[in-house]
Write a protein that binds this DNA or RNA. Structure first.
Lengths: 162, 162
DNA sequence: TATTGTTATACTCTATAACTATA
DNA sequence: TATAGTTATAGAGTATAACAATA
């Protein structure tokens, strides 16, 4: 015997958002990789240029863990695009200073990012694009502002190096 | 000296899509976890009910690797919601048969999914919602249909067990 | 005591390869 | 030879804990 299928689904918003964000992410990664950047490196670079910021501040902006920030800044330093400098206000903190080369690369990567975004929306009319972006912004600030807190996965304590 | 910041960014579509899809995903995971399901289990359940389908067919529909399908079906069997049955047409293949209990759970989980989706879009007017979904569908079928193929990460051959 | 940045590492997720049975 | 499903495991990504320096 065959069970009855549930009634037809409402438009599958999960699929729509997952698919589009995944595709855009791969496009962005591919486009930025041509100048040796990851999306995170681009993000840090751009916000570090705007004003003097510490790693912690940049991690907050880019919604990264501070340990993820460490490897991102390592990569930027290795590529000669940014440097760690001691903060004059807090001797624990490091300011991320963008090099001249880094500023050039950031200008270029920003153009790449803009181009990928524009290409994605190229098929829409001006009105459609405006309303779409308005709605997305509303979702981000209202209904879909904050994640459900997930049931904490248990994590065992690390072994002492002794 | 301070470098010039790049010109103000076009609306950050990457952020909008990443954020909304991430938040919706956590909401969905939290809602479905209350009845012991993952999104993948729900997806397999619903499509297995519609008609007789093999693991490979269900993997294709849900865009999962066949090895991911194995663990998903293991979970469904363990929960008593579905069973593997030999296909009458191909003795290599397994039909995923949904149990009576599984059908009940699928009807419930579909209602949960619909509710989460509706809640996410609750703040929009009917017109806004319709246009938004139309645009998302267009992006999925046109501009953002297929991912950029990523530079293949090298993977070493597995050691012989011998 | 709390916080910044660091290191080491544990965990999750997913995909690859090898394998068995069958086509 | 190729394919369905299984198992084992490699690798990427990320988050936790512990730590040193400083607040």
């Amino acid at each position: 015997m065959t069970a009855m299928a549930p009634a037809p689904t409402t438009p599958d918003l999960s699929f729509l958002l997952d698919h589009t964000s995944h595709v855009l992410r791969t496009r962005m990664a591919a486009a930025l990789s041509e100048i040796g950047l990851t999306a995170r490196m681009h993000c840090v670079l751009v916000h570090a240029i705007e004003e003097e910021r510490t790693q912690a501040e940049l991690a907050e902006i880019g919604d990264m863990d501070k340990t993820t920030m460490v490897v991102t800044v390592d990569a930027l330093e290795k590529a000669g695009l940014a440097e760690r400098r001691p903060s004059s206000k807090d001797r624990r903190a490091r300011i991320i200073a963008v090099t001249e080369e880094g500023a050039k690369v950031a200008a270029l990567s920003q153009r790449i990012v803009d181009r990928v975004h524009q290409t994605a929306l190229a098929g829409l009319s001006k009105d459609e694009r405006e309303l779409f972006l308005r709605v997305m912004n509303r979702l981000v600030t209202d209904e879909l502002a904050t994640p459900a807190d997930n049931p904490q996965p248990v994590r065992r304590a690390r072994q002492r190096a002794s």
